[in-house]
Simulated scan of single mutants.
Amino acid sequence: MTKPSAAQQSTSQPLYVIVSLDVEEEGLFSGRYASSGCGVRNVGLLPRLAPLTRDLDFPLTLFCAHTVFSSNEARPHLAWMRDKCQAEIAAHLHHWSTPPFLSCEGSPHCGEGPPIRTDVLPRELLRQRLRTLLDAGLDFQGAPLTSFRMGRWDLKSSVRPLLVEEGITFDSSVCPLRVFPGGPDHFLAPTDPYWVDDAPGLLESPVTQLPLHPFLARLWYSLTRRWPMVDSFHFWGALSPNPVWHSQSIMRAATKMLLRRGGRVLSLFWHSSEMLPGGSPNIPDKAAADALYQKIYDYLRWLRENHDVIGVTAAEFRALAPSLHFGTRPTGDGDW
Rank of each mutant, 00 (worst) to 15 (best):
A287N: 12
A254M: 05
L210Q: 01
P211L: 08
S222A: 13
P206K: 03
I283F: 13
G278A: 11
I250A: 10
R301Q: 10
P206F: 01
T224Y: 11
D290I: 07
L303C: 05
C175V: 14
W302N: 03
S205A: 14
L219T: 14
G237Q: 05
S172Y: 09
C175R: 10
L177G: 02
S273P: 08
R264D: 03
D197L: 01
P214M: 07
P181G: 04
Q294D: 12
G182P: 09
S205C: 15
R261M: 09
T208A: 04
P200S: 01
P211I: 10
T191K: 00
P181V: 07
W236M: 04
L266D: 01
L219K: 05
P284Y: 12
W245L: 15
W220L: 07
P211G: 06
F215M: 06
Y194I: 08
R218L: 05
S273D: 14
P214N: 03
S172I: 11
W302D: 07
H213G: 05
V230E: 02
S172F: 11
S249A: 15
H246S: 11
R301P: 00
R226K: 11
V174H: 03
A287W: 06
R178L: 12
D198P: 00
A254D: 03
A189Y: 01
F233Y: 15
K286L: 13
S249L: 11
R264Y: 06
V174M: 06
Q248G: 11
S173M: 09
S240I: 07
S247C: 09
L223P: 04
P284L: 10
P176Q: 07
A289C: 08
C175E: 12
S280A: 14
L276E: 15
L266H: 00
G182Y: 08
L292N: 07
L303E: 03
F215T: 11
R260N: 13
A253M: 11
L258S: 02
V265N: 01
N242Q: 15
L268K: 02
S267R: 02
P243R: 09
P277Y: 13
F233K: 02
D192R: 00
S273Q: 14
K286H: 06
G263A: 10
Q294C: 08
L223F: 09
W270I: 08
F187H: 02
I296G: 04
D171F: 11
L259D: 05
G279F: 13
H234T: 08
R218T: 08
P176R: 02
G182R: 08
Y297K: 08
D197N: 08
A189Q: 02
L239V: 06
D171C: 10
S247A: 14
F187Y: 04
T255N: 08
P184D: 07
T191N: 10
L276Q: 14
M251N: 04
L219C: 12
E274G: 12
